[in-house]
C-alpha cells in the first residue's frame, strides 16, 4: 500500500461522502456547499491523475461558475436558511432500492469485464499539446466542436435571457 493508493482512497471517500451529504441534507444552502466540496474533491482527483488542465477548468467553471450560479438562484427563489420539505417516503424507498440495485449490477459487470492492458506509453497531456489539438484544422483536430460549442454558449445565453425575461405589460398610464 503506497502513498498513491492511500491518497486515492481518501479522495474517493471524500468525494462520495460530500456527495451523499449534498443529496440528503435538509437545508438547501448547505446542500450547495456540500456540492461545492464534492466538486473540489473531484478537482483534486484530477490532480491526482496528472490532469492539471482539467482540474483547473473544473475549479474555474464548475466551482467558481456553476455553484455560484446555483447559490444565486437559491437566494433569488427562497429563504436559504429554512428547512426544505422532506421527501416522500413513497419516493425514497423505491429510489434507494433502484439506485443500489443499479449500482450493484453495474459494478458487477465492471468488475468482471476485462478492459485489456494499457499500452506502455506515458500519459503526458501538457498544455501545448492540448492547445494545438484544440485549434487544429487537420486530422484529430477539435476546431469544429470548439466553434460549435461557442455557438451553443451564445444560444444558451440568449435562451436564458429570453426564458427569464419578465414580459412587460403595456403600462396603462
Amino acid at each position: 500500500m503506497n502513498a498513491q493508493e492511500i491518497i486515492f482512497y481518501l479522495i474517493a471517500a471524500y468525494i462520495l461522502g460530500t456527495g451523499i451529504m449534498a443529496v440528503t441534507t435538509n437545508r438547501i444552502f448547505r446542500a450547495a456547499i456540500w456540492l461545492l466540496f464534492s466538486l473540489v474533491g473531484i478537482a483534486s482527483l484530477y490532480f491526482w491523475m496528472d490532469l492539471e488542465f482539467i482540474a483547473a477548468i473544473q475549479i474555474v467553471v464548475y466551482v467558481g461558475g456553476i455553484v455560484v450560479l446555483i447559490i444565486f438562484s437559491v437566494f433569488l427563489t427562497q429563504k436559504a436558511g429554512d428547512e426544505m420539505p422532506v421527501a416522500l417516503k413513497s419516493r425514497t424507498l423505491p429510489a434507494a432500492f433502484a439506485s443500489l440495485f443499479a449500482l450493484a449490477f453495474t459494478a458487477n459487470i465492471l468488475l468482471h469485464h476485462n478492459f485489456g492492458s494499457a499500452s506502455n506509453v506515458m500519459f503526458d497531456p501538457n498544455m501545448d499539446k492540448i492547445g494545438m489539438a484544440m485549434l487544429n484544422t487537420g486530422d484529430g483536430g477539435f476546431i469544429l466542436p470548439f466553434e460549435t460549442v461557442s455557438m451553443l454558449l451564445l444560444a444558451a445565453m440568449i435562451g436564458c435571457i429570453v426564458i427569464a425575461m419578465k414580459i412587460k405589460k403595456e403600462a396603462t398610464q
Binding site: P94, A95, A98, F101, A102, F105
Partner: peptide, 13 residues
Amino acid sequence: LQSYALYFLASVL
C-alpha cells in the same frame, strides 16, 4: 418528473 425518471431507470435496468 421524478416518477418518470424512476420508470426510465427501471426500464433501462
